[in-house]
Design a protein around this nucleic acid. Structure first.
Lengths: 128, 128
DNA sequence: TGACGACTTCTACAGATGTAGTATCTTCAG
DNA sequence: CTGAAGATACTACATCTGTAGAAGTCGTCA
């Protein structure tokens, strides 16, 4: 099994959904997460609870009891998770370099004209 | 289980390795792939063979017998696979929009100065 | 012709992921 | 005090992923 350095945790699709909900309404209970997800999923309460328990194991969430209820907060920021996920994609699919992904984006027309302008604007103003 | 439209197949980490090898030396036998991978992995021959069989099932590879040996060719291009993978990352981690990923890249300093210059160059020359 | 090597198909098994039921416990409203 | 509502921990099970052994088949070389 590819054993990437601990700390570089990869989230599964379902886990991302839960994390998004937690980032949105932390500190959150499983019930809060279920409500936040709304009709985005049809999950049973226990499904969410199970995933949150696993996310605690993975180190993506922290939990604390309040009365008889577990309250969860993220153990990493959304940006941190995004960075890991991106890193994973880069490693798997783009030979590990940002450059080759950018090349792909630019050459393969994955960007709309609007996105291009936006990026140009940001990059150049930031660089000045 | 999140049931994305078939066709939008997501490759696992090990599968990416195999696919990279096949793209590199197609048409390729399992042996070719194993050789191409070199010391990148310690896989047994049958491990590679199993994965290639699964990739055929998934529709990522096509196979044909030559004598008593299976010869494989990719059933999708690297760019196609990259697009799917990127799409997956976008959906999972960036709310499904390219824009928010680019925002992340630009604002979060994920790019080196060199990469920025490179992107600027490509974008602007392409846009002219 | 028989052993060796290369290939194939089958089977296996552990860990991760998706999804949820069940049994139990806590609390609050009557 | 009792029961419903809601929380928890445990258990379960199918599928996917990573990894590979076992057994059978075929061609070749001595």
């Amino acid at each position: 099994m590819a054993q990437r350095k601990r700390k570089d945790l990869q989230l599964s699709e379902a886990e991302w959904k839960v994390m998004h909900a937690v980032w949105e309404c932390a500190p959150a209970t499983a019930r809060d997460v279920l409500d936040t997800l709304g009709d985005e999923t049809e999950w049973a309460y226990t499904t969410v609870k199970t995933m949150m328990t696993r996310l605690v194991d993975k180190g993506a969430l922290k939990t604390k009891m309040r009365g008889n209820t577990s309250v969860y907060v993220p153990a990493l920021t959304k940006n941190h998770a995004r960075t890991s996920a991106l890193r994973g994609l880069l490693d798997r699919a783009f030979g590990g370099t940002m450059g080759s992904m950018m090349h792909f984006l630019v050459e393969e027309e994955k960007l709309t004209a609007k996105e291009r302008r936006e990026i140009l604007r940001r990059l150049s103003e930031d660089q000045a």
